[in-house]
Design a protein around this nucleic acid. Sequence first.
DNA 1: CTGAAAGCGCTAACAG
DNA 2: CTGTTAGCGCTTTCAG
Lengths: 348, 348
Amino acid sequence: VPVPGQARGPDDPPAPARPTLAQVAAVSGVSLKTASRALNGEPNVAAATARKVQEAADLLGFRLNGIARELRRGAMSTLVGLVIGDLGNPFYARLANGIERELRSRGLQLITASTDEDPAAEPPLVNALLQRRVRALLIVPSSEDHAYLAPETRHGVPIVFVDRPPVGLLADAVLLDNRAGARAGVAHLLEQGHRRIALVGDYPWLSTNRDRVAGFGDAMRAAGVADWRALVHEGAHDAASAEQGVAELLGSAAPPTALFTTNNLITTGALRAVRGHRPPVGIVGFDDLEHGDLLDVTVVAYDAEEMGRAATRLALARIDGAAGPSRTVTMPTRLRVRGSSRPAAHPI
Amino acid sequence: VPVPGQARGPDDPPAPARPTLAQVAAVSGVSLKTASRALNGEPNVAAATARKVQEAADLLGFRLNGIARELRRGAMSTLVGLVIGDLGNPFYARLANGIERELRSRGLQLITASTDEDPAAEPPLVNALLQRRVRALLIVPSSEDHAYLAPETRHGVPIVFVDRPPVGLLADAVLLDNRAGARAGVAHLLEQGHRRIALVGDYPWLSTNRDRVAGFGDAMRAAGVADWRALVHEGAHDAASAEQGVAELLGSAAPPTALFTTNNLITTGALRAVRGHRPPVGIVGFDDLEHGDLLDVTVVAYDAEEMGRAATRLALARIDGAAGPSRTVTMPTRLRVRGSSRPAAHPI
DNA sequence: CTGAAAGCGCTAACAG
DNA sequence: CTGTTAGCGCTTTCAG
């Protein structure tokens, strides 16, 4: 219930201009600098003066202008920029969450820009963030060449790549051990007796996808499946296209007995497609799912939030002046075996 | 592969100070203002001059200082602030995604701050955002009194409340029809023959929870279940506590035959607790789940991303000068019936 | 303990 | 088409 007299809405008269420090100083009868000192809690201000200034500030509804302050203090904000695909993808959301948490502990704030995975959208967004003088930049790159960022690193803006490595640029990065993770997941399916394992993958130009396909190949070759390339089906980029792709695979002449899906969205689509299918189709997916336990699906898991934190720590270290060569942190994955990788119904 | 000579890393010598517009002007042999015009694509600049300036800028690695620009242009940024619980919750992530998309179409950028649902964390975060002179503020409030924001609305910063209404303040808001949604969900369970339906709820002081409990009461009373209050179990705030709570309920002397869970996290916990339980326990949950279709769970659904967009539109309208009384947009919910609300095994 | 002056990097007015 | 002057709101010298 709104408190009459205190509460008020957007219906009231237009905005009076915001009071400035000069006005606060005038009202409280001190100089600009004294007002500044008082409001910033600096020492060497008489208690009575400080109180007077504070009262004037409250009366006027004064709020320090952070833009002016930053300009004066050297045009460096307390903002850290993040460029990602889209926040709607749980992976990105968890990543952003980890980053935000780590930043918060340092009094920094996160500013997010989404590319929708459009490579052309990346440079303008990065540019907008740099223009805003972000303290550091975290990027899950969608573009294929990052040489355009070189002038920036030269001016001391730390840039950290997350999930996908930089191309044409040396920079800090936090990556996953995609190849080993995929290899372990596929090896597990092979151990269960599967041989005709189809890989359902994302766009082939994504480095993560390439590495996961490579891991798939490693495992298949090791198991003596020579024609594994014929089992690779790339090009899905969301749950819907993955679902359709898997449906087609299952309807083909020699359907796979198991699937290796290279990311969370594709796994979701695949799960939809195989629902109720007889005989059951084995599945191992890369990326943990929101409800992976309830869906009883075997996954190659890792801690996306920790990835975000690790990337942030790299950036913070650079902000703190850490020099030295660029570092790459590779995060491990862990095979989380659940019901979906059940023994093949019809081992060959 | 890094391109030698172009690529470089953080290992190189310390950051030369960033060049300013004055330096670009000096190098290209024009005045400050001409350089400004050229770089901003303003008219009335000779093509040759523009080129010269651009070259100097590229050479120096010049990047316009957005902070100085904003200060000069009136100390109003192109930032919109969002204060939410945490990005890790899929609901918040979807909301943020919708907001970000809507903002992007207007060239505005999103800055996010998480409270972790801690009421005390809210005011400082809001303050930090206002100090940064955000163009508008979107809040999913966790605090219980928003009178402290009154001075801000008076200075023309549009504030929009999302998901939960403001208290002690008149402001625009986008809310859900929680009560009707809950009523419909519970009515559906009643229609399936359930009578002993337990509500598993969040903290009782959350307005959304209160409204959903009220809707539960509406439906139960209408069905003649007088002692419905005894079936209300509030206080869960995450999946783990909900799981434990439900496990206890199911182990009690007179276990419920069905559950109404008041948000996504609680539904997840409940699903874990009832897994494999005999006889099966009916479930209707508020909030759609990431994999609701695969989990075959009946939910009271709504479009969280659209909620974010609607809230952003309200804010944009105010930015564009819309006056008038504060508006509240109430978004409808939709009962999405799936398998988990199966007929009661033992109707009373 | 307090104040006056200078200036962060840029753009808005006004001249030329 | 181009240049000069002023000043956004604040903090930082440097003097009292």
